[in-house]
Amino acid sequence: MSRLFEEIDSQATPLGQVSLRRRTIPALGNRDIYEVKLGDEFLMSSMFVAAEEALSTLGLAAVQGESLSVVVGGLGLGYTAVAALNDERIAELLVVDALETVIGWHRDELVPLGKTLNADSRNRYVLGSFFDLATDPQTGFDPEQAGKTFDAILLDIDHSPSEYLNPANASFYTTENLSLMAQQLRPQGVFAMWSQNLPDAEFEALLKTVFTRVESHVVTFDNPFQGGEATNSVYVCVK
């Protein structure tokens, strides 16, 4: 196998075949680039993490108080979770992912940030569907404490509010189900969400049916494949 490319792992999951790959692109520098694919679709790359990190920094900037309890929905390559743990106010972080394979990559330290997450006692992996747990406030996100509430919930799973990793996720984006999730936030708690697209006015209007304050942030980053800047969005909502 070429030293420029390696498939580290590939496993069947309920969503399809998920693979973890590592490559080097000499024209972009001598560094390892990690990628995750679902079937033939690219889900994430360690080349483009600015918006995933901004999900944590922007979301947590809106949270008041100390000794924070935070949920991250979607583990991916770990950038959102690590960025959250960089906030010294974090007392505990629950990272929810539906794929045991992805959690295993981090526990086995097959991805670079696995070591960082495993070494931080504030971090805990939760195997489960974020969307099922979000809409069941009596059970909630913490398998050790039913009905627990949190200071922030940070979501990075679907591509956007209208482009879903799994078609079943579409039902989450309603006033009813967002309200069920909001029950798991403490007073003035924050819900923040990543999107690959520019802010969507219809989705902002939907969020305003649940939250008292909604702000959208555009995050720009360099994309050498497009020969310039690319953009993602982060929605930040206060209960």
Rank of each mutant, 00 (worst) to 15 (best):
M1S: 14
S2T: 15
R3G: 05
E7Q: 14
I8M: 04
Q11F: 04
T13G: 09
T13V: 02
Q17D: 14
R22W: 03
R23M: 07
T24L: 10
I25R: 13
I25V: 14
N30R: 11
I33G: 09
Y34T: 03
E35D: 15
K37G: 02
L43Y: 11
M44Y: 07
S45E: 10
S45C: 11
V49S: 14
A50H: 15
E52Y: 05
A54Y: 02
A54P: 01
A54Q: 07
L55D: 03
L55C: 05
L55N: 03
L55R: 10
S56E: 00
L58Y: 06
L58F: 06
L58E: 04
G59N: 04
G59A: 08
L60H: 04
A61D: 14
A61I: 03
A62T: 06
V63N: 00
E66T: 13
S67N: 15
V70P: 00
G74V: 02
G74R: 01
L75Q: 01
G76T: 00
T80Q: 06
T80C: 05
A81S: 15
L85G: 01
D87N: 14
E88S: 13
E88R: 14
R89D: 01
A91W: 02
L94T: 00
A98L: 11
L99E: 12
T101Q: 13
T101A: 10
T101M: 03
I103P: 00
G104W: 04
W105R: 09
P112T: 03
G114Q: 10
G114K: 09
T116H: 05
N118C: 12
N118S: 11
S121E: 15
S121A: 14
R122W: 04
N123Y: 09
N123K: 08
L127P: 03
S129M: 14
F131A: 00
L133D: 01
A134M: 07
A134F: 09
D136Y: 11
P137E: 09
Q138C: 06
Q138V: 12
T139N: 11
T139L: 08
E144A: 15
E144C: 12
A146D: 13
G147I: 05
K148A: 10
T149K: 13
F150K: 05
D151E: 11
I157S: 01
H159E: 11
H159F: 12
Y164A: 08
P167G: 12
A168K: 14
A168G: 10
S171M: 09
F172V: 08
T174S: 15
T174G: 08
T175R: 15
N177W: 08
L180S: 12
L180D: 03
L180Y: 05
M181Q: 10
A182F: 06
Q184G: 06
G189S: 07
G189R: 07
G189E: 02
F191N: 00
W194G: 02
S195L: 07
N197R: 09
L198E: 13
D200E: 13
E202T: 12
A205M: 10
L207H: 05
K208S: 11
T209M: 09
V210G: 00
T212C: 10
T212W: 01
R213Q: 13
R213N: 13
R213C: 04
V214G: 00
E215F: 05
E215S: 12
H217S: 08
V218P: 02
V219Q: 08
D222F: 10
Q226V: 08
G228H: 12
A230R: 05
T231I: 07
N232I: 02
Y235G: 00
V236G: 00
V236P: 00
V238W: 04
K239Q: 12
